[in-house]
């Protein structure tokens, strides 16, 4: 059994499958990025060709950057994503701690209720959410998006984090209680650092759908000054003419921040995914 796992044939097969998967998954991204550096004619002439000196063209990027509000869109996306992420992680971890640490009536029921959101898409409630935002005067604010995305991200966060928090040593928490630490200190100083890999996992799974979302920005915050980058890029897609150079450039730029955030979390992420699998 142990031997078989390390046989070269198996290892080659595993790597071949993984490499094939990586190529397939990255191919669309690769096509977007190479075409963003080509002239319009070259894009349609041979979409799979690499940018060459004769068809190299930065017109997409100049259009996007000249479109005055692009940086604002960028900033909006970043603010909304980071703020939502912060609240999802904070409230998710707090709820998970309460559910895993304290015995109270209705604990299991509360856990199920909080996990229900994993199965029910929040978009089903779009109309009610819009009415709510109109009534509270939050339409066309980033706050509206942050609130919705926090609600959207919490179920998975609570679900994953409570599982991890159950495994944090009870002795450690009890030692803290005997030494006079408050429950908040125990949570922030003892428990949170130990579930950091799980937090990173949750962060990545929460961040990507928020960054890519077009639905809620379109419905709740379409105004110029609060537009997110995904929505902002849509100006280049017209009903009759689409500025493909600009669209591709905007999409390429939009990848960068997620990539940076991902790299920040990834070291922790790998530990999070393999925790429990490897002891």
């Amino acid at each position: 059994m142990h031997k078989a796992r390390h046989s070269p044939a198996r290892s080659i097969a595993a790597h071949a499958i993984l490499i094939a998967w990586t190529v397939i998954a990255l191919f669309p991204v690769f096509v977007i990025v190479i075409n963003s550096f080509k002239s319009r004619k070259a894009i349609f002439g041979d979409p799979l060709a690499l940018p060459l000196p004769e068809n190299f063209d930065l017109v997409g990027y100049t259009t996007v950057l000249a479109q005055g509000d692009f940086f604002q869109y960028f900033l909006n996306s970043l603010i909304v994503t980071v703020a939502s992420l912060f609240f999802v992680l904070l409230f998710g971890a707090m709820a998970a701690f309460a559910l895993s640490e304290y015995r109270f009536r209705g604990n299991t029921l509360m856990g199920l209720y909080l996990a229900l959101g994993i199965m029910i898409p929040i978009r089903l409630g779009t109309v009610a959410i819009l009415q709510l935002m109109v009534a509270s005067g939050l339409v066309n604010t980033r706050t509206a998006l942050v609130l919705v995305y926090t609600a959207q991200g919490l179920p998975l966060a609570v679900f994953i984090l409570s599982e991890f928090m159950r495994n944090v040593s009870h002795d450690l928490k009890n030692a803290g209680r005997i030494d006079g630490l408050s429950e908040y200190t125990i949570f922030f100083r003892l428990v949170l650092p130990l579930v950091r890999p799980a937090m990173a996992t949750v962060a990545v799974f929460t961040m990507i759908p928020i960054w890519n979302d077009l639905w809620f920005p379109l419905i709740l915050a379409p105004a110029e000054e609060v537009k997110t980058i995904t929505l902002g890029s849509q100006v280049f897609i017209g009903q009759f003419v689409t500025n493909w150079n600009a669209v591709l450039a905007a999409l390429s730029l939009a990848i960068v921040p997620v990539l940076v955030l991902y790299l920040i979390f990834s070291r922790q992420l790998i530990r999070g995914i393999t925790a429990g699998a490897v002891k």
Binding site: D171, N174, A175, R177, I178, D179, R189, L190, L194
Partner: peptide, 20 residues
């Protein structure tokens, strides 16, 4: 009375030292 107010000290099987 809260544990910290009882003037007790406890040693655990898993040591339970603060890792940080």
């Amino acid at each position: 009375l809260a544990p910290a107010k009882r003037e007790i000290a406890m040693v655990f099987q898993t040591y339970a030292l603060y890792p940080h």
